[in-house]
């Protein structure tokens, strides 16, 4: 089977700052991979490069056999790319227009990308809303009238409208209450059971990773410091920074400790291992 996403030696600078510094990733169709890191690790920049929101300075991205469209790409190329990958943000307000009813937000994407019109389009819209746990009657609601969890469900419904191969979830559950966060993780897990879809799950929260993703890469200072099966990385981290991250996750019996001085962010001797 050919990989869905291949990222090789990806580099992105912002001025003098190197946000992404030689990242390699490989994602198979239907695979869920978590990209874990703290502020400044380069995880969000990596996500933006993969989705084509930013252009890399070096390296190669191949998604479904094609690179992300550049800034001068034709409309057809952009639409084709959008059908391969969709992005869900931390704050659904970023992706949902506050003036637009959520049903219209979903219908708009359906009309842009597919042949459905009229009653058939409305039926598909309602099916998508129901699939993410919303009531089809909520199609007429604006984002403001919904709770944070419902807004995130609406954003997921819109992303699923094009039946993408890859969903990039950028801190998609970070702003939600604990009990609602579990619902969205649960929803994402069930969506994957119903149809093959790959996830690139960008998060600072190592604690939820094993409940959604079988594989994980840990980023620091623009580089991947460790990668592997989520359970293995959580139970037996090999990299000292990964160990510090795992040791910082509150859990029963856990005590906070002031950590000894950590290793510097750059560890050039470590090579990224692709899962």
């Amino acid at each position: 089977m050919k990989p869905l996403l291949e990222v090789e030696q990806l580099v992105k600078h912002y001025g003098a700052h190197t946000a992404v510094d030689g990242v390699d990733l490989r994602l198979m169709p239907g695979q869920a991979l978590a990209v874990v890191g703290e502020s400044g690790s380069g995880k969000t920049t990596t996500a933006r490069l993969v989705t084509g929101l930013e252009t890399s300075d070096a390296g190669r991205i191949t998604l479904g056999g094609a690179p992300p469209p550049g800034p001068r790409a034709r409309r057809a190329e952009r639409l084709a790319h959008a059908r391969r990958v969709q992005l869900v943000f931390q704050d659904p307000y970023t992706s949902l227009d506050p003036r637009q009813k959520i049903g219209d937000a979903v219908a708009e994407v359906l009309a842009l990308h597919g042949p459905l019109r009229g009653a058939a389009l409305e039926a598909r819209r309602d099916e998508l809303l129901t699939r993410v746990g919303l009531d089809a009657r909520q199609a007429g609601s604006r984002p403001r009238a919904l709770s944070g969890g419902q807004r995130q469900r609406a954003a997921i419904a819109r992303a699923l409208a094009v039946e993408p191969d890859l969903l990039v979830l950028d801190e998609a559950v970070a702003a939600l209450d604990v009990s609602v966060q579990a619902q969205i993780v649960d929803l994402l897990a069930r969506i994957r059971e119903q149809r093959p879809i790959a996830y690139l799950f960008i998060t600072h929260d190592l604690g939820i990773v094993p409940f959604l993703c079988e594989d994980v890469v840990v980023m620091r200072g623009g580089r991947i410091v460790e990668s592997g099966r989520s359970r293995d990385v959580l139970t037996a981290p090999r990299d000292p920074y990964t160990r510090a991250l795992v040791d910082s996750v509150p859990r029963p019996g856990w005590k906070p400790a002031r950590q000894p001085a950590r290793q510097p962010a750059r560890q050039p001797e470590r090579k990224a291992v692709t899962p």
């Binding site: 709770s147 944070g148 969890g149 419902q150 209450d177 604990v178 009990s179 609602v180 966060q181 579990a182 619902q183 993780v185 649960d186 190592l206 604690g207 939820i208 990773v209 094993p210 409940f211 359970r231 959580l234 139970t235 795992v246 996750v249 859990r251 029963p252």
Partner: peptide, 19 residues
Amino acid sequence: ARPDPTVPGAKLRAIEGRP
């Protein structure tokens, strides 16, 4: 909703509704 991620086989369980 927040099981110990280091326990192999731990399952996350969600309840419906919002706070």
